[in-house]
Design a protein around this nucleic acid. Structure first.
Lengths: 224, 224
DNA sequence: ACAAAAGTGTTTTCGATACACCCATGT
DNA sequence: ACATGGGTGTATCGAAAACACTTTTGT
């Protein structure tokens, strides 16, 4: 259908993702530098306009790949942003996602058709972002912090095996908080999201840590 | 900006809300009957197309009022639905909300410019819905059930005062579960979302229940 | 043997559950 | 007085927090 009514005409949909990683205890987010107006020269989260022939989730993945080369990841939708003036060009609503991945396992493209640079930024070194991406990033981080408990989204960081001390470092980086080693272990095992592989780490210089594997399915806990 | 690229042309945004109420222990949702195509004659949730000059939340409220006459309510965004074919007319993405209100306090319009009827339906008596509204309703209910714990969204049902037995009936209806009277009280008071008014109910035939008031602000609990 | 990092165990505390009793009202 | 529904209290259980010791490796 061709839209004629001015009230609805020329609306568009952004799909935007905040991609997080943890490097040496530091939580970082992927930003790309725009070459096109609006906000040419600004850093932004990966994302762009949704196509008519794709669903939201695949659209968000396509935009991530186009802007960074990253593919085969899992993302989670968390909120839609739609202030009237969030894009200076036309009315755009932004369906937003977040994801976690291992920066060492992906090769980030520096330049693409619409970006001149890409980099992982520590959360306390975020430059001024284009559009409303600062607000989106702040909320994405909050959602990640909420979801990390009781979820297996960290499976993305450790697709095959993981040790509990490794996990603890990531939790501490993302939640920005320290945990007691012994209690952390108990909590992780009680969450029932890990399977014991029976094997242990090797070549570590110290006592080898046990290797676990994220379960494929995890049950939602009862709320009350 | 005028969109010319076919890939993005003619996209639109729905703002859709599932409005819940509880009547005599039964959870119900407000549905309206469409008069226009597509899905003329079908029952749907309140909602419609977002205008260019309004933000998402106000847009959702406007649609609620237009389709039902209900105003001055609180709603919560929970998810955006965007399957390519969710609307047979054109590409529409649906930003979805849920809300709770007291059906006795509102006057629901039976007919509007685009609806021929409106009614509260018990959850086990939902007719076949237009668009993807059955899916939206199912997820809205789940979100309501999650959010009802640790939130003051029930303030909408009891804007001034509430008794704990009243609250319990609503929780039981929405969560579809029974609670121990004494433990339920303790849990509600521990949530720290209620203020004691010092007063008591009157004219009830039995021992008067204490009156509480929902706090305005409630703090988010730490996740870990 | 020693340092470094990992695994296991115990005590305590606090919140959730199970359960019993008392109170205020209208009839 | 009694039936109805509401408020208060206690004992118990289980999860989470605080805290100490043992184990495995490399040097």
């Amino acid at each position: 259908m061709e839209v004629k009514n001015k009230l609805y005409k020329n609306q568009g949909i952004h799909v935007i993702t905040a991609l997080f990683t943890v490097e040496q205890g530091i939580t970082k987010v992927l930003l790309v530098k725009r070459t096109n107006e609006p906000f040419a020269g600004y850093w932004v989260l990966t994302g762009g306009a949704l196509y008519n022939n794709e669903d939201l989730y695949p659209g968000a993945l396509r935009e991530i790949e186009e802007k960074s080369g990253i593919k085969n990841i899992n993302i989670t939708e968390f909120k839609t942003f739609g202030k009237v003036d969030r894009s200076p060009v036309m009315r755009m609503v932004a369906v937003c996602f977040f994801g976690v991945l291992d920066s060492k396992r992906v090769n980030v493209l520096r330049k693409t058709k619409t970006t001149s640079n890409a980099n992982w930024f520590a959360l306390d070194e975020i430059p001024s972002l284009g559009f409303d991406h600062e607000e989106i990033l702040a909320e994405a981080l909050k959602e990640l912090q909420k979801k990390i408990v009781n979820s297996n989204i960290l499976k993305a960081l450790y697709p095959d095996t993981v040790t509990i001390p490794e996990l603890q470092k990531v939790y501490e980086a993302i939640l920005n908080k320290q945990f007691d080693r012994r209690n952390f272990r108990k909590r992780m095992l009680n969450l029932n999201i890990l399977d014991d592989t029976g094997k242990s780490e090797q070549f570590d210089g110290n006592k080898p840590a046990k290797l676990y594997r994220f379960k494929k399915k995890i049950e939602d806990k009862e709320v009350m």
